[in-house]
């Protein structure tokens, strides 16, 4: 983990309010793992004040490039979306614990399930799993057609099913209706209700969920993003989403 002043290489609007930013810095290397995130300072000065946690969508360790996909909805992300190539982006990272890629190998099968802006970290995960010989299948849920992104990109690694809540694209309804149970692993990132629905999914070897929470420092100091631990009767045990997560094995924390 370190502070990096990265150079914005490209910035592309890839769906309604959804932007893909690629940044360069020589410190961007294979320490950046799928499921981790970077904490990004948006704009100069103190408004907005805090950093924005943005998931790692892709890393090219040889070219030292990091891809981030984010939704421009608040002041900070809107400022970020207005930046042009050549600009400097101050980020802390890589932060948090990512997906346990190393546990999987050739012959394993995995569902990758994303919801909305929870889809991006699954891209790097899918690439790394495929490299290890894992068979991956994707189900990605979005609100509506206008916010669907990266469908073709994911197809390079395995089949992709898109669902939309309003039925305007792909299958109508939620991701949970599209999954069959015969799989070794399930990895998911998206809104909490979606994660809750997948918490007890009967994958043979493991279910891993990437959580979202409002953060302060992003490094485990401020205790803004804590969650309870399942089965803890004292009510005192906790995990920090930013530094113990954001990826947890299903059943570890209370969603």
């Amino acid at each position: 983990m370190r502070q990096i002043k990265a150079e914005l290489v490209s910035q592309t609007k890839i769906a309604s309010s959804i932007f893909e930013a690629i940044v360069y810095h020589e410190a961007i290397d294979d320490h950046f793992q799928p499921g981790q995130f970077v904490h990004v300072k948006a704009g100069m000065g103190s408004n907005p004040l805090l950093r924005r946690p943005i998931s790692i969508c892709h890393v090219d360790p040889e070219k030292h490039l990091l891809t981030m996909i984010y939704r421009a909805e608040g002041k900070g992300t809107r400022l970020l979306s207005e930046m042009v190539p050549g600009g400097e982006i101050d980020l802390l990272g890589p932060l948090g614990q990512g997906f346990p890629v190393g546990n999987l190998g050739a012959g394993d099968t995995a569902w990758l399930v994303g919801g909305g802006i929870g889809v991006p970290p699954l891209y790097y995960l899918s690439q790394e799993l495929t490299k290890r010989g894992v068979t991956v299948k994707h189900v990605h849920g979005f609100q509506t057609e206008a916010v669907v992104f990266y469908e073709e990109k994911f197809k390079a690694f395995g089949p992709v099913t898109i669902t939309t809540a309003d039925g305007s694209y792909g299958e109508e309804g939620f991701v949970t209706n599209q999954l069959n149970h015969d799989v070794d692993y399930l990895f998911a990132c998206g809104p909490t209700p979606m994660l809750r629905a997948l918490e007890s999914f009967p994958a043979k070897k493991g279910v891993y969920l990437s959580l979202e929470q409002r953060m302060g420092c992003g490094i485990g100091a401020c205790l803004a993003c804590v969650c309870h631990v399942q089965g803890d009767e004292t009510g005192l045990a906790y995990r920090k989403v930013c530094s113990d997560g954001p990826v947890f094995q299903a059943g570890e924390v209370v969603l």
């Binding site: 408004n47 004040l49 805090l50 401020c222 205790l223 993003c225 804590v226 906790y238």
Partner: peptide
């Protein structure tokens, strides 16, 4: 344990 989340909210030049 402290309070339930969300525990932080951003404000103009503050939190």
């Amino acid at each position: 344990f402290g309070n339930p989340t969300p525990r932080v909210a951003e404000t103009t030049s503050g939190m």
